[in-house]
């Protein structure tokens, strides 16, 4: 039941986002930016989708419903954007000068859930000269292509997280676990 309600609400919000600006003069009632026909049709469609897709959308736990996690996620976005800006100037420098020193390294961030691993892998792909190539499904180790391998990082195996992905594992653990 909880899964059905959450899926329906998410579908309805997506439908509303995609149909903004349908308010017009020919419609009988306009609710702010939407005409009443669109809202009724959206409700019917999202209830149908909620019945069909509730087991795909929410697998086991509903811990992501906690609002504290959403606020941490918003804070994480700002930190992430800062890291991403740094990364892009680094890539710009390497495109212009052509100085590269690439290699594939392995890190073990010790995350337990699939959602956390996905979030960390996407964050790593978008930040400082690193790109996730493969994942070990058994223990959630990530294999990362690194455009500028530092000598001191290779002394310890597997490579310490702080060289590759700044403070991301801490944030992701707070959000998704």
């Amino acid at each position: 039941m909880v899964a059905f309600v959450i899926t329906t609400i998410v579908c309805f919000i997506t439908y509303l986002l995609l149909t903004t600006g349908t308010a017009n003069n020919s419609s009988m009632v306009n609710l702010w930016l939407w005409s009443i026909e669109e809202i009724i049709l959206g409700l019917i469609l999202s209830i149908i989708v909620g019945i069909i897709a509730r087991k795909i959308f929410i697998k086991k736990s509903i811990r992501m419903l906690n609002p504290v996690r959403w606020f941490i996620f918003i804070g994480y976005l700002f930190y992430f954007f800062y890291e991403m800006a740094k990364a892009n100037f680094d890539v710009a420098y390497r495109v212009i000068t052509g100085k590269i020193n690439p290699g594939i390294v392995k890190i073990s961030p010790d995350l337990k859930t699939d959602l956390g691993t996905t979030m960390l892998a996407n964050s790593i792909t978008l930040t400082p000269g690193t790109l996730t190539v493969d994942v070990d499904e058994d223990c959630n180790d990530l294999y990362i292509h690194w455009i500028n391998v530092k000598k001191e990082a290779l002394e310890k195996k597997p490579v310490d997280c702080k060289y590759v992905c700044a403070g991301f594992p801490k944030w992701v653990r707070r959000i998704a676990e």
Partner: peptide, 12 residues
């Protein structure tokens, strides 16, 4: 990977 220093994915 070209000019690679290290490739740990080989031993996965």
């Amino acid at each position: 990977p070209a000019q690679a220093v290290i490739d740990e994915l080989e031993k996965k």
